[in-house]
Design a protein around this nucleic acid. Structure first.
Lengths: 250, 250
DNA sequence: CGTTAGTTTGACGGCACTCAAAAGTTGTGG
DNA sequence: CCACAACTTTTGAGTGCCGTCAAACTAACG
């Protein structure tokens, strides 16, 4: 993942608009691959975008054809229940993959909507699956990515109160956006309060109240979508609340 | 246990204590495989048990070595949070697999405890991964199983009230236990109320209240672990209630 | 027969939801 | 540039579900 690795790859024409020059190179597909193999991987990857906000990448029950890697922007994956309520499954930020859920039974289980104009790499599934039978290590890598995606969804935050969940959410997004933000603890939330509410399973009003309270307490500062964490330590305490209550406090 | 398909396989010695005689044959590993390939799969599978209730199959951070298929009994996968509260991730019933979460980074993310004496097939991961590079279709099958396991965890029931979630849970377990129960809508819950509570993220008291209410209403009948669904239609209404459907009309 | 663990039932309180309305923001057209 | 509409966010009041605490009860085990 050093400059040396990238410059050596830059010589290969096919990389120009693919992973070789992509900021995600080494993240999506690790440097463990041989140069020739990397070429073969890149050869099947298509580049699309920027897609404007409001575009649907795919919808529920669409046939599964590819995995997507977000280069920039933000994608929201969600479903609608029978009452029409939106359930946000995840937000996909630059450097992240989506689509693994649909490997079986080859249909998408959720909708993918562009929240913020996004460019993506499209990785045709049949092609990459075929390649993985030929390139040692690629199969393991795919399984690993899938398993990691799996594990992300497992994160247990249910049962915690709204303030705590929001604090965890803010830290999570902040960390995931660090790749494209120079100032630490300061970033733009690419999604609306309503989407956050649907993600954390609270009402928009509750999210609003939480933000108000944290702002009054001087923990964070919010101006429209722009967020600044003023008191990192305090927000950290709130996010980790359950741990300290038992062991340290009493 | 006796069936035509099984007797034909019984001629092959290697199947004696492996998938060939297993009631799950064709479920874990589909019949799409050639006989020779099936032999190779069976050759790497070990059979253990019965393990008594209270045995840990593995614990958090144990190195990942194998997938497990439940032949009979019941396994509970769970984690303990920092306050020592148990979070049940899933119950694994006969015919189901566990272990996929640990593919990356090759450590188990949860504990697996035997709730009801269980026999299992142990599928060493390195071996099956190696085989999948040689046997066409096996890799796809593994990905499909993993993705399906993935999708199971995605089931959105959060936000629904305790009664509705419990109704859904009862139907789910009933359907999954049908393989080993002759009487429809009548089965033994292999887990305690406390475990159910930790799975559905409610308190044991709430589960108890829900059961009492459903019993008084004549919807189900519970005697210790034995459950009988008396009014399937009514319980179905409760499970599918699109929220506002209270006891209306009848 | 006594102990222990799991279950049931009641009382009380808190957090988040709903309903409702006001305030702020964005986009469009005059 | 302003005015208006449509939308999002904020704030308030009231309600309900579930968690906690506590005690009575039941089954299992020695």
């Amino acid at each position: 993942m050093g400059a040396a690795a990238e410059s050596s790859l830059a010589n290969v024409p096919v990389f120009r608009h693919a992973c070789g020059l992509c900021s995600l190179q080494g993240w999506c597909w690790p440097p463990g691959l041989q140069n020739g193999d990397l070429c073969r991987v890149h050869a099947i990857i298509r580049n699309i975008g920027p897609l404007p906000a409001g575009t649907h990448l795919f919808r529920v029950d669409d046939p599964f054809t590819a995995l997507y890697a977000v280069r920039n922007g933000c994608i929201k994956s969600y479903t609608l229940d029978l009452q029409g309520h939106e359930h946000v499954r995840d937000f996909h930020l630059p450097g992240e993959l989506l689509g693994f859920d649909a490997v079986y039974p080859e249909r998408h289980h959720f909708n993918a909507l562009v929240l913020k104009a996004a460019s993506l790499c499209v990785i045709p599934y049949r092609d990459i699956a075929g390649l993985s039978r030929q390139i040692p290590g690629l199969q393991t890598r795919i399984l690993a990515l899938m398993s990691r995606d799996f594990a992300r969804q497992q994160k247990c935050v249910e049962g915690l109160d709204a303030t705590q969940q929001f604090a965890i959410f803010v830290f999570d997004v902040e960390a995931r956006l660090q790749r494209e933000n120079d100032v630490e603890y300061e970033f733009d939330l690419p999604m609306s309060h309503e989407s956050i509410a649907n993600y954390l399973r609270f009402s928009p009003e509750t999210i609003s109240r939480v933000i108000s309270r944290l702002q009054q307490a001087g923990v964070i500062q919010v101006d429209r979508e722009h967020v600044r964490i003023l008191d990192v330590a305090r927000l950290g305490q709130i996010a980790d609340a359950d741990q300290k209550n038992k062991s340290a406090g009493d």
